[in-house]
Computed example of a mutant assay.
Amino acid sequence: MRFTFIIAVLVAVLLCSCNDKQSLQRYFVDNSENKDFIVLDVTSTILNLDKTKLSSEQKTALESFDKLNILAFRKDSTNVVKFETESKKINQILKAKEYQELMKVNSGSDIASVSFVGSEDNIKEFILYAKKDENGFAVVRVLGDDMNPNNILALMTVLKESKIDLEQLKPLEGLIK
């Protein structure tokens, strides 16, 4: 009887721990081989920076940044229904409580949002989402360690000084107009 009770408790715990909610990371993985999506992983080397010219604050910000994961859906006349379905999935994922929204812009057919995962002092990732009805949508995960809003602001100043290697972003060319 005791053995049966222990087995029942273990099964209940396993069933409760299974989560049907899809994370953004899982969504990226699930769609990485899908022909309608463009997938890019971009490291900080894209910035082509002379690190000796950076301030200590900029160096700290750059060190907190690991990489960008970019997933873009290019809309065309053959995948309109899939575009609507996939953009609804992204919106649903970003409504989960782990994604804290910082900003959202909605002008009808164009939508953009910035969210983050973690705490304000230790941000694990920033999520940038942009949707344009005539082109498609893109989700960018900015991943790093110990990122915070100050680091992001400093990283923005670093971006202004960088010589971005546009060749790494070539697959996104037709998506952005």
Rank of each mutant, 00 (worst) to 15 (best):
K21Y: 06
L71K: 00
K170S: 06
S55A: 06
S55C: 04
R26H: 14
L169H: 02
P171F: 10
L159T: 09
I46S: 05
L172Q: 04
A96D: 14
E101Q: 10
A8K: 09
T85A: 08
L128G: 04
D36L: 03
I46R: 03
L102M: 13
T78E: 10
L166H: 15
E84I: 14
R2F: 10
E161S: 12
Q168L: 14
R74Q: 12
I90W: 00
N19C: 07
M147I: 03
A12M: 14
E33V: 07
Q22C: 06
R74T: 07
I111A: 03
I127R: 00
K89S: 07
Q100E: 11
I6M: 09
S113R: 01
N31P: 02
V158K: 02
G118S: 05
I7Y: 15
L166A: 14
Q100P: 02
I7G: 11
K59W: 04
D133H: 13
M103Y: 05
F73Y: 13
N48T: 09
K88C: 05
I127E: 00
S87R: 11
S44Q: 12
Q168N: 11
C18Y: 15
D66S: 14
L24G: 01
V105E: 14
S87T: 13
M147L: 13
L24D: 01
S56N: 10
A61E: 04
T43Y: 11
L169F: 12
E120K: 15
L143N: 08
I123E: 01
I164E: 04
Q92T: 06
L14Y: 07
K177M: 08
V117I: 13
D30A: 10
A8P: 03
T85H: 07
N31M: 08
